[in-house]
Design a binder for these strands. Structure first.
Lengths: 337, 337
DNA sequence: GGAACCGATGTGACCGTGCACAACCGAGGA
DNA sequence: TCCTCGGTTGTGCACGGTCACATCGGTTCC
């Protein structure tokens, strides 16, 4: 004849109720901050909770409410600095609001894989999803899914009507291209990101706009894959046709690789060729020469994503954020001729 | 008079049972691959599942089995390359085994915060925890908690009796220090990681052992904080007392900052001072000069962590892994005098 | 003075699954 | 023929919460 609490089980709401000499429902009310509970009763229940070291069973709660207090993060980026910082911020912001976070890394961006990833998160009953999958394709798949789960993407597509938010990539790209122009560089190449990426497109458009506005010649952009290795390769190749005086690389990693390639080929950065990047990763300030780039506040981006998603989940009006202003970080990899 | 499945609810195991004309228990058996089910019955159930697009409710399952099929990742590292790669690998390996992953980033490593983080994961009923919190202190707190949840740490403490695994840091540090010695560098400084970090200690010991074995003078190590900014600062300071010909920095970020500092002070790397790092982050090959360092297989580490943890959860014998052999990546930041 | 109402609490059902146990059936051995 | 046994299936309950509704005592208002 042992009581439930003696059988080695975790204490349940009913064990607490027994100890506090109230009904299990009263305990539930205390847990959920129900308004009409006498302070005295509440205190007794809280005591019992403390004595038994009771913790609510989230699975049971999820079962009956069909809300898991969990957010999903769908990521299609391979451990780069930016997305990683955002994810950390998302996680922190979510925890602060009482949500836990489960991440799902996409290894491919085929529609089937995206679909099954979203379904998997659905199966886990996440209350909402933050998507860090900056490929245009992913975006379309998601919109087509008409999923029942609310979601937010960290990258906005071209249209302003999208549910998404992002630093203003285009403005940043424009800013840094104009910086190169102001330095007197007129033959400016662009080492772009992969075709499918939303951010790659925005940065390229910012670059093109700036050049056009200044009546400067544009060159067909080189398509890269974001990696330093590719930048290195591109640098070696480009050095053979030195018909340019500056390169805007779509991210810092490629910019650093690019400088390496130029070095290999005997081109001097910044004197012969100025190089600028995008993102302001932690090493950007310390490479040789220190990289002029555009700083992005990835953490703030993550926090905003959570705020937006939670508003959507709770049916509140979404807070409106202005685009995150990009900041130019002028260092030494670009100088006037 | 509507059936449950018409009320807009998700189909349950009983809806499937009704359609397949079996009991709900039979459906449950099919879902769990129970051996004694007639193939014909099983087929009928599977049909019904497909027709209704039924998905098991994980919350209900977690409630009754008190297993969540979820692994927790406790991380105390701020978005560095290594841990991030490991986490991605952990996530992938866990998903492959049918587990989902929830991450929890520690902002402080005070015993209270660690305790509450572990409790939080416990509340979420994770089946096991992977700890990427390389501080000695965290290790002690965890051991003291006698938590009921199985866990694995990605960094082993000094004792070999610990549940943990790691690349062989000491061997890697030794390897690269010996490389410097072989190059004829005899006055070798060490820019170490923070006092509390297990990996910082191992790398330092590897360094000290190698020097001692070669009968070379050791210098009191400089304590850094892993960041490139600190490396930069240290480089400028060290340049004032050039009584050394090489520096082994405990990670690549600090090594890169260090080279920057030396450059600022007019010291030539590698001619005047050779610099080596640890980790082999993606930019290491592309900075100027390309950084000689020790390569670590962070992904493999993550996979092994999951294998070990799952074995522990399932009560199987843990697979025994040899220490992950570190690999020297010889580049140009260290040369013979 | 009684009805209506409100705050504080209790009662029972229900969420969707897995487990223990029972029941049934056909085969095989005594 | 009867009993045993193992494969196959069904019945009822438990898991730990929340929700809808009932209850009860005390005010308020007419």
């Amino acid at each position: 004849m042992t009581s439930p609490s003696e059988r080695g089980r975790m204490p349940s709401i009913r064990d607490v109720a027994r100890l506090a000499e109230v009904s299990h429902q009263t305990v539930s009310r205390v847990l959920n901050d129900h308004p009409s509970i006498r302070p005295e009763t509440k205190a007794r229940v809280l005591d019992a909770i403390a004595v038994l070291d009771y913790r609510p069973n989230l699975a049971a709660r999820a079962l009956v409410t069909s809300k898991s207090q969990t957010l999903g993060v769908l990521s299609a980026t391979i451990g780069e600095f930016g997305p990683t910082s955002s994810i950390a911020a998302i996680e922190e912001a979510a925890r602060a609001e009482g949500y836990s976070v489960t991440t799902l890394n996409l290894t491919s961006t085929s529609p089937e894989d995206i679909g099954s990833a979203v379904r998997q998160l659905g199966r886990e009953h996440v209350d909402g999803i933050v998507v860090l999958a900056p490929q245009v394709r992913v975006f379309h798949v998601l919109r087509g899914m008409a999923s029942t789960v609310p979601f937010v993407t960290l990258q906005s597509a071209s249209g302003a009507d999208e549910i998404g938010l992002s630093a203003d990539q285009m403005a940043g790209a424009r800013l840094i291209t104009e910086h190169l122009i102001a330095l007197g560089r007129t033959e400016i190449l662009h080492l772009a990101g992969p075709q499918d990426w939303i951010e790659a497109e925005s940065r390229m458009r910012g670059y093109l706009d700036a050049l056009r506005e200044a009546d400067l010649p544009t060159f067909p952009p080189i398509r890269g894959d974001w990696t330093a290795d590719f930048g290195h390769f591109a640098g070696q190749e480009l050095a053979r046709r030195p018909d340019f005086t500056a390169v805007f690389a779509a991210n810092d990693l490629m910019a650093i690789g690019l400088m390496h390639g130029f070095r290999d080929a005997g081109l001097r950065v910044p004197e012969d060729v100025s190089v600028v990047g995008f993102d302001d990763i932690p090493v950007a300030a310390h490479v040789a020469p220190p990289l002029t780039t555009v700083h992005q506040d990835f953490s703030e981006l993550g926090r905003r994503a959570v705020a937006l998603l939670l508003a959507q989940i709770r049916g509140e009006v979404a807070p409106s954020f202005g685009a995150l202003a990009p900041v130019l970080r002028i260092r030494e990899s670009a100088v006037s001729r």
